[in-house]
Design a protein around this nucleic acid. Structure first.
Lengths: 194, 194
DNA sequence: GCCTACCTGGCAGTTAATGCCAACTAGGCG
DNA sequence: CGCCTAGTTGGCATTAACTGCCAGGTAGGC
């Protein structure tokens, strides 16, 4: 059922993405205009905005799909797995599903170096967090009462904070360190006695 | 040495801020234009942008001073205070220094309900985090070596994650719960054995 | 009383983003 | 095959956030 439209759409999306990422890497995010991307990708400005609603989505757009994957992975962990371990499992799935390491590194650097992108990225991440809170809450076996239970929210936020710290360290060291290992170190610093 | 210029500047800033916040509360952030704020505040659009570099700064602007206050408070804690306690002390100072509770609640709701503002707020918060990492690292007594120490970064990120979770809970419950208490609960959920 | 320094306002221009409309194209149907 | 419909594309105009520039004004030192 993949019509010709769907296929050419895929091709166009990829072409736009490649052009944009190349230009961002060459001249920086702020210095690259939508007009230039559209011109070099051989598409009208108007259509570019139909594919990607905002300039930031050119970088952070495909995060949405990853968020869904993360949620499903956490949900499908066996019931006896703790909330912390379930979230770690989800995080590890993301690592393999992301892109090639080089691409992920390039994207990470772009995001961490560009305040506007960083903010947008975190905004998307916050939506993942909100979606994960009920999942984690169920795993904690809490009865939702009148006084809300901050535990699930805090745990999810902390896991993301550690994942973010680990990713930033990984990016600033050009990917030479092991990301999963950095994540474990971050979590240990938080949860261990100190 | 407060010249007339400084004073009228203060007055102007306050007038703009009051007008902007009122309009944001009445019609929402996105629906309010800079032109309208300038008109109702009796100032030119050009000068408004000189006082506040961006529209978002009308809401998140004074966060900068708070960040500096936070950093200094944490720095000035006695040496025997742990990193966690020093950060908590800083957070508590922020609570009292903020504004009136009503104003803080109104601002919090505006920020949490407006994606663009939320992103901007987090962006500023990230700068606080970066400034705090060396302070916390010194308190951890770590010798910065070739292999970086993720602990300070992770601890700071976690404290902010918990503070953010607590603030969001506090705002969604109209300020009826105690913010410091919520923060303690969040941190306990993360650091306690579970 | 003048002069310098700074502040203010208007104007034009750039960039991201949106709505509208006309031209086009794929794919179904007689 | 020829048409028709639906979905797509591109150009044009518009809005809103910003920025640079320049002319005018005002406070404060000399």
């Amino acid at each position: 059922m993949t019509s010709l439209w769907d296929r050419s759409r895929q091709v166009a999306v990829q072409a736009i993405l490649d052009t944009a990422l190349r230009l961002f890497a060459e001249q920086g995010y702020e210095q690259t205009t939508i007009a230039q991307i559209a011109r070099e990708a051989g598409i009208s400005q108007r259509s570019l905005f139909r594919y990607f609603g905002t300039k930031e989505d050119l970088v952070c757009g495909d995060q949405d799909a990853l968020g869904e994957l993360l949620k499903q992975t956490v949900e499908q962990q066996p019931a006896e797995v703790s909330a912390w371990d379930a979230l770690r499992a989800g995080f590890e799935v993301l690592l393999t599903a992301n892109h090639t390491p080089e691409r992920a590194l390039e994207l990470s650097r772009l995001i961490f170096d560009t305040p506007a992108l960083h903010a947008r990225y975190i905004e998307k991440r916050l939506r993942w967090q909100a979606a994960l809170v009920p999942v984690v809450q169920a795993r904690l076996g809490a009865a939702p009462g009148p006084t809300p239970d901050p535990r699930a929210k805090a745990i999810v936020a902390t896991v993301f904070a550690c994942a973010d710290s680990a990713t930033e360290l990984w990016a600033t060291h050009d990917g030479r360190l092991d990301l999963a290992d950095l994540y474990a170190q971050c979590l240990a610093a938080v949860r261990g006695r100190s």
